[in-house]
Every structure is written in structure tokens, then in C-alpha cells.
Design a protein around this nucleic acid. Sequence first.
DNA 1: CGCGGCTTTGATGTTCATCAAGTAAAGTGG
DNA 2: CCACTTTACTTGATGAACATCAAAGCCGCG
Lengths: 231, 231
Amino acid sequence: MRIINDITDCKTCIYRKMLFPDLSDQEYDIINSARKEYIFKRGEIIRKEGETIKSFLYLRKGLVKLFKTDKSGKDQILSINKPTDFINLLSIFSNSTYKYSISALEETYVCDVDLPAMLDVIRMNSDFGMRVLNRISKISDEIIENRFEINQKQVKGRVAHILLFLSDNIYKKSSFRMPITRREVGELISMTTENTIRTFSEFKKDGLIAIEGKVITIEDFERLRNVNKTG
Amino acid sequence: MRIINDITDCKTCIYRKMLFPDLSDQEYDIINSARKEYIFKRGEIIRKEGETIKSFLYLRKGLVKLFKTDKSGKDQILSINKPTDFINLLSIFSNSTYKYSISALEETYVCDVDLPAMLDVIRMNSDFGMRVLNRISKISDEIIENRFEINQKQVKGRVAHILLFLSDNIYKKSSFRMPITRREVGELISMTTENTIRTFSEFKKDGLIAIEGKVITIEDFERLRNVNKTG
DNA sequence: CGCGGCTTTGATGTTCATCAAGTAAAGTGG
DNA sequence: CCACTTTACTTGATGAACATCAAAGCCGCG
């Protein structure tokens, strides 16, 4: 992890309109002066379960996973998040410490705004507050919705689900480099590494996907979507 | 369901201090005049998945379940909520329609405040907004945390988990009338009705609990907590 | 180049869902 | 209030889905 200085001012940041379209100059200044930028390498831990929450994190570029570790040391992945997500919104308003860890799945750029400054702006600008409220709701909803769906499926449906998630939501391509290991896929959809691999192999054998090293190509979307629905 | 008129004014409501300790008279008036009270009988649906969200619901008395129904018609229970919970906070800021249904597990009193009035007050009073933000986070966190825990356990641990949840969090007694059927217990912890019952019977046989009709008495907390941990 | 983590496949066993079938309890309508 | 219907509860038998264990090849990296 290292500090960078990519953006000189929030006012001119390309991500501005995503969440900050309606802030006054004064409000921008508050955020901008309480802001640091970090870059994390693939595999680095951005925040660890139990740490004190001191700032508001905005994912500018890259990909991260949110995960929890149980007593026996096994991880469970809650979600995979992409740019413009507020990656720590979940814990931020209800807890003083992180309830899960965040790590980078690829080179990741993060904007880090001191929490008190952020809270000041939320208090000053209620529309902005409402927008944050909206975002936080969406993120939780997605996690809950996702777990609901995963829960009803069996292994094939689960693997199809995650492949389609990566293809449709993250990469918007039929061919992509897997950002997570097979073990992590298992941790995301609550199954063992072995069964995850077996299912990948089966999909390959059946012509649903092609596998070349880390690169997955979805070859038959229709059948894969069908497995997602019925499996 | 019927309309009642238990509370004449929010200002004098006993629940006031729970979430509304810091509203001005004007703000109280806005909420109070946009407010209705309802009473729901055991089994009645309070809100149905897909309905438009028009109001803010406050659970004054009773017990409810939040649940989703899948394509095949099977329900999955997300959570059981008790008084002072804002039972529709989850969807309210991120969606225009309910993403889950809410039904009464016992006679339930609900305060229903028109959404626009609520949003006005949130905009007027940022401390109040922060309090709502905090609550919404907590509710989501609890659901996510809960699913995380349930996910790692097998049947015995899951049943122990829900029994301890009811005893510790809802009734605060070792003996209580089950507010949900065995099938619903299964829907809450992702297992079949048959296995839920089998596990109850086993706990009874092993002296962990006593069962008299709907009434469950936890007889050996220590061992039950141990099953919750290790199972 | 060797070590550790990732990937892969096979064999085995356990857990749990499903099916079946019957009893008990709780609503419902005449 | 009683016959009837429906829903809840219960137990057993069976098999499928999946976890676990084992063993070996692969890959990236210091």
C-alpha cells in the first residue's frame, strides 16, 4: 500500500457526479482537505475485521472483496465490489469497528476521507445525506438478496450464478480473467474448493465455458443462465 | 387489520425517546399528523413483497417476521423483529417497492407514518437523519451477521442458535411459547421441516429442552450454548 | 530450484433432503 | 357445537448431494 496523489481536487474528479453532484464549494473543500488517496496491490488487506473505523472509503478503481473469518479460520466472502462502491458503508454508521475485512483482488485505488469531515458534510447537506442513506441501503440489500439466492441453489446453480455475476456485472464481457481463486469462489457461494473445481470442470466438459489458465470464457450463455435458474 | 387510536400524540408516546428524542415541536407535529396506527392479528400480512413503499413503519408492540418467497413458492425468513424496530427500514431508502414481505407472528401494533413527512423531517433535522442511518445499518448488519453464522453451522447448531435467539433476545426467559411453527424455524435457518422437528426431538431426548405443546423450556443452557458453538 | 499455495481427480462417508404415512391440532362452515 | 378440512407435527426409510480425505501435478516466486 502506498499513498498517491492522483487527484488534486474532488471538484474536478471524474467520480464527482457519482455521489457528490450537489455539494457546495465549501463542502467540497471540507472533504478535499480531509482526503487521502491510497493504492493497494493485489492481495493486500485494506481494512481488517475489528479495526476502528476512522474514515470513509471510496473505491475509485480496482476490485475488492468483503469477507469475514470464523473461529476455525475459514473465510466467508460477503461480496465483491467494484469502483464507485463505498466499500465500508456497511459498518460505518452502526459500528465503531469493522465487522468484516476488505482486501484488494487487483490493483485498487481508494479515496479515504476522515469520518468526522464526512459526517459534517452529511449534517450540512441533507440531500447528500439522503444519497448516502440510499447507497448504504442498496449495498446491504444486494448482499442480503444475493445470499437469499445462493441459499436456494445447489452447487451448479451457485457456480453459474457467480460466473454470470462476474460476466454481467463486473467485466461486462463473456471472457475474463478470474479475479478470485477457486477456493474464494467456494467461500463466496458456501461450498468446498473441491466441489467448486469439480463444477468448473463439468461446465467445461459440457461446453458451457472454456478455461485457459485463469481466463474463463462463457461459451453458452443460454444454457448457463438456465443452470443458474434451475440448479 | 384495523385502525386504532391508542396514541393521541407522538410527543407523549412512550416510544418517543427510542428514536425521536431530539425533535422540535414542529417536527413532532409533522410526523404526528401524517401518522396512523394499525393493529394486526397473528398471521396477517402487514406488507407484501412488491408493494409500493408509501410509509415508514414502526413496530410498537408484537412480533413480526420478514420473509421472501422464491419462485417455487417456498419462503425464506430473513429475520424476526420485535418492538422498536423499524420493520421496513431495509427497503425504504433503496427501493420504491418492498423486497420482502412482513407478517405478524402475534398481535402487533404498528405506527405508520407517510414517507414524505418522514423524509421532510430527516431533511430538517440531520441528527435525526443520522439516527435513522444508524438504525438502518444495524438492522442490515444483524441480518448479514446472522446469515453468516447460520451458514457455518449444521442442523443442531442452527436449531440451538434460534432457540437461544428466542430465549436471549426476544423473551428473555428460559420458557416461552414458540411464536413460529417448525416449518418456519426451518425457513429461518435453511433446513427442512422434518429435520427441524427431528432436531427438536433429539434435544428433548437429550434433556436440553422440554416441549409441552407450543411451549419450549430450555433446561440446560450450558450444553445448548455448547451445541450452538460447536454444531 | 524448491517451497507453498493453487488446482485437479478419485474414493469414501456423512449429512441432510426427499418421500411416505400416520397422528394431532386447529380452523371453518353448516 | 360438531363434522369436515386443512395445516402442523412426527417418525422411519432411502438416496442424493456434498464434505472430507488423500494424493499428485502445477505454477509462481523468492
